[in-house]
């Protein structure tokens, strides 16, 4: 697969996980591509944790009011006609309280226990966890959407080496190679991109994959 196609391919597959009416929180980067691939008839309610439930389409340059209306990445945004603006305590009550159906975010490392590290590489930069720890703990489905490896090195591990964002939280991992369900027994390979063999996927993964007896092609 061409490098330029990877993100769109992953986003398209992630979009199939969402159901009409789901409340969804999208992380920065690749996850923001997902809404463009939603099947006809599937409309999701987007949340921006800084203060919008029901985020609308991106405002045009002349309608943007960045001093007053932004999303969690700081870009101009606004509530949809059905949406509303909320404060941070309400927003995270909404998140922790289980009212978000799915959160989709990238990862630096994911492990076979469903733990995720994606907020800090110690000593490199000082970012901050922002709302990521709350989202992982509170959302019903946590979908990690990311490239399978980083410069050829596995990102799916037996145990994360970087500081955790949250433990035992990830429900599904979607990469350009495959779809993995996180189960009590470990990582179950449920779909595979026909461009790859099971052996190739396993070789690119540092945790042992349980191949589903019902393994399907990823499309």
């Amino acid at each position: 697969m061409e490098k330029s196609e990877i993100k769109g391919f992953i986003a398209k597959r992630v979009a199939k996980e969402l159901k009409d009416g789901d409340v969804v929180n999208l992380g920065i980067g690749l996850p923001t591509l997902v809404p463009a691939y939603l099947p006809d008839g599937v409309h999701v309610i987007l949340q921006s944790e800084n203060g919008i439930i029901g985020t609308g389409p991106k405002p045009s340059a002349e309608n943007a009011e960045p001093k007053y209306k932004i999303d969690a990445g700081g870009s101009p945004a606004c509530a949809d006609t059905f949406g509303c603006y909320i404060d941070s305590a309400t927003s995270f009550g909404f998140i922790r309280g289980g009212h978000v159906n799915a959160t989709i975010l990238g990862g630096l490392e994911v492990d076979e226990e469903g733990s995720l590290s994606n907020w800090i590489i110690p000593g490199k930069k000082m970012p901050g966890m922002g709302g990521a720890m709350d989202l992982l703990v509170g959302a019903k489905e946590v979908i990690v959407a990311m490239e399978h490896t980083a410069k050829g090195n596995p990102k799916i591990l037996k145990k994360c080496t970087l500081p955790y964002t949250a433990v035992h939280c990830v429900t599904k991992i979607i990469t350009e190679m495959c779809v993995i369900n996180v189960t009590d027994k470990g990582l179950e390979l449920v779909e595979i991109n026909p461009e790859f063999t099971v052996e190739q996927v396993q070789a690119a993964t540092a945790a042992t994959l349980i191949v589903s007896p019902d393994l399907k092609p990823m499309c």
């Binding site: 800084n50 203060g51 007053y68 209306k69 909320i86 404060d87 941070s88 305590a89």
Partner: peptide, 21 residues
């Protein structure tokens, strides 16, 4: 965004955030 002279506040857009608490 809009504050009366008693201090009652109405917020615009996403500016509520941490102001409320």
């Amino acid at each position: 965004h809009m504050i009366d002279k008693f201090g009652n506040i109405w917020y615009k857009g996403t500016t509520r955030n941490f102001n409320i608490v």
